[in-house]
Simulated assay, not measured.
Amino acid sequence: MFFKEFIVVLALATVLYNGVHADHCAYVATKDCAFIPDRQQVCGTNQQSYRNSCFLAKAYCADNTIHKAHDGPCAVTTTPSPVHGSEVALDIFCLDLIYISCPTGGVQICGNDGKFYENVCEFDKARCFHRDLKDDGTNCV
């Protein structure tokens, strides 16, 4: 199972989406959310409780108007503003991506932090820890 997921992550890490980012929803579609150990329910903005963030990410990928309202079942409100569904999908993607070694080579990406990243895989790994990181394309030295 790990090897299959590694290949999927590796393949997705090399695919460009909107010119820069891997398509996180394509990756989330491959996940079997029932086997993710996270059992903390989350509430969607559609007022449906999801077993974990993975199931919510799948819901967002099927309907991009669904976001995370708060942690816990929908009967309890603890977070004042929703978390965008794309962030939840990125979280699921990053859970696996951070544990793989990126391939060498590829097209360098210039981040808005002024650094060059060797390829889209390394860029997406950095985005897992710095969510405001974007492809700048012009300000790297």
Rank of each mutant, 00 (worst) to 15 (best):
N112C: 09
V8P: 04
G105V: 07
A13T: 15
F6T: 07
C33H: 08
K134C: 03
I36H: 11
L56T: 01
R39M: 06
F116Q: 10
L16V: 08
A126G: 08
T104W: 03
Y117K: 09
S101Y: 01
G85W: 03
C33M: 11
A29W: 10
Y27C: 05
H84S: 05
D124Q: 14
D135G: 04
A57I: 00
H84M: 05
D32M: 07
A89P: 01
A26N: 14
K4E: 11
D23A: 05
A11H: 13
L133I: 05
G72P: 13
D23G: 02
L56W: 09
H67K: 11
N18G: 10
G137N: 11
T104P: 04
Y117M: 12
V28D: 02
Q41V: 01
F3P: 02
G19F: 15
D132S: 13
T30F: 05
D132H: 15
F6W: 08
C102S: 10
D113A: 04
L133F: 13
F35G: 02
Q108E: 08
N46K: 06
G114K: 09
Y50F: 15
T30D: 11
A57V: 03
T79N: 15
H67M: 00
D132C: 01
K134I: 04
A75W: 13
Y60M: 01
N139T: 15
R51S: 04
D38G: 09
F3A: 06
Q108P: 10
F2T: 11
R131C: 02
C25S: 10
S81R: 09
A34M: 05
T138Q: 14
A11Q: 15
V120Y: 11
D38W: 09
D135I: 00
C54F: 00
V15L: 13
V20D: 09
A126C: 06
Q40W: 02
N139L: 08
T14I: 08
P37T: 12
A89C: 02
V9Q: 15
I109K: 03
G44R: 03
H24N: 04
V120T: 13
S81Q: 10
F35K: 14
L90I: 02
G137K: 13
A89F: 01
P37M: 07
R127S: 09
C110S: 06
N119M: 08
T65C: 02
C128I: 11
V15C: 04
I109A: 01
L95R: 06
D71K: 13
D71S: 15
C74R: 08
E118L: 09
R51V: 00
K31D: 00
K115P: 05
V107W: 03
V9G: 06
V15Q: 15
T45N: 10
Q48I: 10
C94R: 06
P73D: 07
L90K: 12
T78W: 03
L12M: 09
S53I: 01
N46I: 01
